[in-house]
């Protein structure tokens, strides 16, 4: 349905998006994951025709949208990262305004406004000014405004930044429902791994302007199929014990966390017995030993050497 071909963008000679290829099938829910500054928002701005790519192409049903973006604009609903609403207007007035600008027919606009308000759970508060809303409520109206013209593709740029858990759940549920019941194609960007894991069938991981991995959750996790992530809690911290563990042939990485040690080792390397022997020698007890089920966060860490919130 929608694809980018070697899409790139440079600002003052610096490449912020570097030849990325993304595709979205109709009715799919796809995540675009990456830390702040990875180039997600720039990618979205290019896809939604707000900025022109330096090179590459964006195709909607096989047809380039760069020269004439009118077709993609018709089918696109974009939820920007910022609260793109008039604070001095009520929720209803904002939706009416955006509905009118999207040329939703007069006789159906009122119905659509009530539908989207119901969807985001703010029907009862529609007569209140946006400036009196909490951050979470504003973000929900921000989403509602993008749904008025019933877009086929919904692009959400970090729609849950800085909001309370209740509003966050509501937003995730709304997006899931839209994808499930209306068949809306969703491109969801976030730096919250768990949101993307919950919502999206397929994920693109982006870092420093490049797609560094992509696929279904299972496919991405299989990247870590040769590794175990082990959390170890010790009775005392010992520098010599840490050095000993690092010297084990099957240990790839060792990080100190606030609860102990995080060890990435070769899968099924029987690390426990070696660890018990080494700690006994140092007179240190192993309080806790846990082999973690890998998450997308671990995949990201593995690929970039840093966490998503870095």
């Amino acid at each position: 349905m929608l694809e980018t071909v070697k899409l790139s963008k440079s600002f003052k000679g610096k490449k912020v998006v570097d030849e990325i290829n993304i595709y979205l099938d109709a009715g799919e829910s796809v995540g675009l994951l990456g830390p702040n500054g990875a180039g997600k928002s720039t990618t979205i701005s290019m896809i939604s025709s707000l900025i022109r790519p330096t090179s590459g192409d964006i195709k909607l049903d096989g047809k380039s949208t760069i020269k004439d973006p009118s077709e993609i604009r018709k089918v696109l609903g974009v939820v920007p990262q910022e609260i793109a609403l008039y604070e001095e207007l009520t929720a209803y007035e904002n939706l009416k305004f955006f509905g009118q600008t999207y040329q939703v027919k007069k006789d159906i606009l009122e119905g659509r406004i009530q539908e989207v308000l119901e969807m985001v759970g703010l029907k009862e508060r529609q007569k209140e000014l946006i400036k009196t809303f909490s951050g979470g409520m504003k973000r929900r109206i921000n989403i509602a405004a993008a749904l008025l013209h019933q877009p086929k593709i919904l692009i959400l740029d970090e729609p849950t930044v800085g909001i309370d858990p209740q509003s966050r759940n509501h937003i995730l549920e709304t997006v899931r429902e839209l994808n499930k019941t209306s068949g809306t194609t969703v491109l969801y960007t976030s730096h919250y791994m768990e949101e993307v894991e919950q919502l999206c069938k397929r994920v693109y991981i982006m870092d420093r302007g490049k797609i560094i991995a992509s696929g279904s959750k299972e496919e991405l996790l299989s990247i870590l199929s040769t590794e175990d992530t082990i959390q170890v809690q010790l009775s005392n911290r010992s520098e010599s014990l840490i050095d000993t563990i690092k010297s084990f042939s099957n240990v790839f990485q060792l990080d100190e966390t606030n609860v102990g040690l995080r060890i990435i080792s070769k899968k099924n390397s029987n690390l426990l017995s070696k660890l018990v022997l080494a700690s006994e020698k140092e007179g240190i007890q192993i309080v806790n030993y846990q082999v973690e089920i890998p998450s997308l966060e671990d995949v990201f860490l593995h690929l970039t050497g840093k966490t998503l919130r870095d």
Partner: peptide
């Protein structure tokens, strides 16, 4: 700055 302008650009206006 608020993003309303971008929303309008994406609309038929």
């Amino acid at each position: 700055v608020s993003g309303v302008w971008n929303r309008l650009i994406l609309s038929p206006v």
